[in-house]
Simulated scan of single mutants.
Amino acid sequence: MSHHTRGRKADPKPADNAIRKVPKSPAYFSDAAKAEWKRIMPILVERRVLSPADLHAAERFCDAAGDIAAARTAIASDGAYINDRHGEMKRHPAYATLREATAESRRWAAELGLTPASRSRVTAEAETNDDDDDSPLAV
């Protein structure tokens, strides 16, 4: 385990230029990644924690979800153990992908406030009423 990933993560806070509408998922996404995008993006948009610059993090999280689904499908299809080129039984290579994608997913989930611990730190402010812009204090 790398030392730079340990410890407390930055608290996700409402972004000043938060995305207000769920953007379309990237075209290259697998079906599983698109499904994850559709699941998490409304949550993140509602919490106002994503700016346009943060979309990369959400994309990587969904990519990892797609990789997890593909690895599980390969293992389910081929079995947990397969014969290698020498005819010896070996654990399916998709387990390495599954392990790496799961770790990647966990890291991005924490950054996005999608884990129970990180979600408890999210302090998104309530939506302000558009009529408040007419107040003398509005900038």
Rank of each mutant, 00 (worst) to 15 (best):
residue 1 M to Q: 13
residue 2 S to T: 13
residue 5 T to I: 11
residue 6 R to F: 11
residue 8 R to K: 12
residue 9 K to L: 08
residue 10 A to P: 02
residue 10 A to W: 01
residue 11 D to C: 03
residue 11 D to N: 11
residue 11 D to W: 05
residue 12 P to R: 04
residue 14 P to N: 09
residue 15 A to S: 08
residue 15 A to P: 01
residue 16 D to K: 11
residue 16 D to C: 02
residue 19 I to L: 13
residue 20 R to H: 11
residue 22 V to M: 06
residue 23 P to W: 13
residue 24 K to H: 13
residue 25 S to C: 15
residue 29 F to T: 03
residue 29 F to L: 04
residue 30 S to K: 00
residue 32 A to P: 06
residue 32 A to C: 06
residue 33 A to P: 04
residue 36 E to I: 01
residue 36 E to L: 00
residue 38 K to T: 08
residue 38 K to H: 13
residue 39 R to D: 12
residue 42 P to D: 00
residue 44 L to W: 05
residue 44 L to N: 04
residue 45 V to H: 04
residue 45 V to E: 02
residue 45 V to S: 03
residue 51 S to C: 00
residue 51 S to E: 05
residue 51 S to K: 01
residue 52 P to I: 04
residue 52 P to Y: 09
residue 52 P to R: 08
residue 53 A to S: 15
residue 54 D to Y: 02
residue 54 D to W: 03
residue 54 D to I: 04
residue 56 H to L: 10
residue 56 H to G: 11
residue 57 A to E: 12
residue 58 A to E: 07
residue 58 A to S: 14
residue 58 A to K: 05
residue 61 F to W: 12
residue 65 A to L: 05
residue 69 A to V: 09
residue 69 A to N: 13
residue 72 R to L: 14
residue 74 A to Y: 12
residue 78 D to F: 07
residue 79 G to C: 05
residue 81 Y to E: 15
residue 81 Y to F: 14
residue 83 N to A: 06
residue 83 N to D: 03
residue 86 H to N: 11
residue 86 H to L: 06
residue 88 E to W: 10
residue 91 R to G: 03
residue 92 H to A: 02
residue 94 A to K: 10
residue 96 A to S: 15
residue 96 A to H: 14
residue 96 A to C: 06
residue 96 A to I: 15
residue 97 T to I: 14
residue 98 L to M: 12
residue 99 R to Y: 11
residue 102 T to A: 12
residue 108 W to H: 09
residue 110 A to E: 10
residue 111 E to Y: 08
residue 111 E to V: 04
residue 114 L to D: 01
residue 116 P to H: 03
residue 116 P to W: 03
residue 117 A to R: 02
residue 117 A to Y: 01
residue 117 A to P: 00
residue 118 S to M: 13
residue 119 R to L: 14
residue 120 S to F: 03
residue 122 V to Q: 11
residue 123 T to E: 10
residue 124 A to H: 13
residue 126 A to Q: 14
residue 129 N to H: 04
residue 129 N to Y: 02
residue 130 D to S: 07
residue 131 D to V: 02
residue 134 D to P: 00
residue 136 P to A: 01
residue 136 P to M: 01
residue 138 A to E: 00
residue 139 V to E: 07
